[in-house]
Amino acid sequence: MPPSLSVLDLSPIPAGSTVADALRNTVDLARAAERFGYRRYWLAEHHLNPGVAGAVPTLLMQAVAAATADIRVGSGAVQTGHRTPLSVVEEFGTLDALYPGRIDLGLGRSGGTRDPRRENGHVEGRVVDGVVIPAPFTARAALRSQRVKAQRELIRQPGAEAPGYTAVVDEVLGLLAGTHRASAGVAVHAVPGEGAGVETWVLGSSGGESAEVAGARGLPFAANYHVSPGTVLDAVEGYRAAFRPSATLDRPHVMVSADVVVARDAARARELAAGYAPWVHSIRSGAGAIPYPDPAAAAEAEWDPELVTDRLETQLVGDPAAVAERLAALARLTGADELLVTTITHDHADRVESYRLLAAEWAA
């Protein structure tokens, strides 16, 4: 059986539309994804981005779960650097109580110091078994931007320090299992949350701390090819090397993400994907995601190839058969058990159609 397909939705705001439009589109796409047979529908978390409405994944998860019947609904991912483990467990415990057996808790590393293991020196890009693995991209400029500094000031309490990611994951797992002890040795019980049937995932972009903690705790791992394509192999290899069987898994379980645009033919798909380069440039330059441009505006936009080329090379754009073939190659290379597809187009109907065409081709 081929790997199952799932959806990652950033709730993008197309140029000329509103936040309300974007959130309605998210719910509409979730209903469509369920009809098309996608396994999971994950909501991203981003802040202070003019072109992205997905800032509070738990609220969007509630709206999506209420509008659907069976598809699993999750976070891709909760940014743990500015959240307490208790707040995460209580929120997801509430969601699980409302929609039992359908909730995924994706935990992302954010807000702490940069993991030095992600700095691997100069590595040449290459093609491995038909899959483009570009040179790793370093986001130093974006991380030094004034927008990121403002985000940190607004999203944390004054003077707060982000705890270590491994400690956060352990505390979340302990609170869910009812085994956590406070610093004074007092037993604590998260209500709601303790005993919740959520499926806990770790998301990561490299073979560093995220991959290692996922493997050592026997959790499923989602590797971000769409965010950091140059380090996806390091991520899945690091996870598998660290894996130890757990009550959750007896073998590693990997999901790999990919940016995808599918249309009836390659020319139409390239037209729909035209806004991707200026959109990625806005993020990586540190300015924050712009409203997603229409193809005509994108044709006039200027962008720095150094900031964008690796993402353009690894965006899967084309007709259904061509994109399915490239996705299958990515799955083979990474050993993925699941694939997480994210698609952004200016017109919502084109985005829905892209997911429909891909699901039909994948099933065939």
Results as ranks from 00 to 15, higher is better:
residue 6 S to A: 13
residue 6 S to M: 03
residue 7 V to F: 05
residue 8 L to H: 04
residue 12 P to T: 07
residue 18 T to K: 08
residue 18 T to W: 14
residue 20 A to I: 13
residue 21 D to I: 14
residue 21 D to F: 15
residue 23 L to M: 12
residue 23 L to I: 15
residue 27 V to A: 02
residue 33 A to I: 11
residue 33 A to F: 09
residue 34 E to N: 09
residue 37 G to L: 11
residue 40 R to M: 05
residue 43 L to D: 00
residue 46 H to M: 07
residue 46 H to S: 04
residue 49 N to Q: 15
residue 53 A to W: 09
residue 54 G to I: 07
residue 70 D to Q: 11
residue 71 I to K: 00
residue 72 R to D: 05
residue 75 S to K: 03
residue 78 V to N: 01
residue 85 P to L: 03
residue 85 P to M: 02
residue 86 L to D: 01
residue 86 L to Y: 07
residue 88 V to K: 00
residue 88 V to Q: 00
residue 89 V to P: 05
residue 92 F to H: 09
residue 97 A to K: 08
residue 98 L to E: 01
residue 104 D to M: 01
residue 112 G to I: 13
residue 113 T to S: 09
residue 115 D to Y: 09
residue 116 P to A: 09
residue 123 V to Y: 02
residue 128 V to A: 02
residue 131 V to W: 05
residue 135 A to K: 06
residue 139 A to R: 10
residue 141 A to T: 15
residue 142 A to K: 08
residue 149 K to V: 14
residue 153 E to F: 12
residue 154 L to H: 10
residue 159 G to L: 12
residue 161 E to H: 15
residue 163 P to W: 03
residue 170 D to Q: 08
residue 170 D to V: 04
residue 172 V to N: 00
residue 175 L to R: 01
residue 176 L to A: 04
residue 181 R to L: 15
residue 181 R to P: 07
residue 182 A to K: 04
residue 184 A to N: 14
residue 186 V to Q: 12
residue 187 A to Q: 12
residue 188 V to P: 05
residue 188 V to S: 04
residue 188 V to R: 03
residue 195 G to P: 08
residue 198 V to H: 00
residue 199 E to A: 06
residue 200 T to H: 00
residue 202 V to E: 00
residue 202 V to Q: 00
residue 212 E to T: 14
residue 212 E to K: 06
residue 216 A to V: 06
residue 218 G to T: 04
residue 226 H to W: 13
residue 230 G to C: 09
residue 231 T to W: 04
residue 232 V to P: 03
residue 234 D to K: 02
residue 235 A to S: 12
residue 241 A to W: 01
residue 244 R to M: 10
residue 247 A to Q: 04
residue 255 M to H: 01
residue 261 V to I: 13
residue 261 V to Y: 02
residue 262 V to P: 00
residue 263 A to R: 04
residue 266 A to S: 09
residue 267 A to I: 09
residue 267 A to K: 10
residue 268 R to V: 15
residue 268 R to W: 07
residue 269 A to C: 10
residue 273 A to E: 00
residue 276 Y to T: 03
residue 278 P to I: 08
residue 278 P to K: 01
residue 279 W to G: 02
residue 282 S to P: 05
residue 285 S to D: 11
residue 290 I to V: 15
residue 292 Y to K: 01
residue 296 A to S: 11
residue 298 A to V: 06
residue 304 D to T: 15
residue 306 E to L: 13
residue 307 L to H: 14
residue 307 L to Q: 07
residue 307 L to T: 11
residue 310 D to V: 11
residue 316 L to G: 01
residue 319 D to Q: 05
residue 321 A to P: 10
residue 321 A to M: 06
residue 324 A to L: 07
residue 326 R to V: 06
residue 327 L to Q: 03
residue 327 L to E: 01
residue 329 A to K: 14
residue 331 A to W: 06
residue 334 T to S: 07
residue 334 T to L: 06
residue 335 G to R: 07
residue 336 A to L: 13
residue 336 A to T: 13
residue 338 E to D: 14
residue 340 L to V: 15
residue 342 T to A: 05
residue 349 A to L: 14
residue 356 R to K: 10
residue 362 W to Q: 02
residue 364 A to D: 09
residue 364 A to V: 09
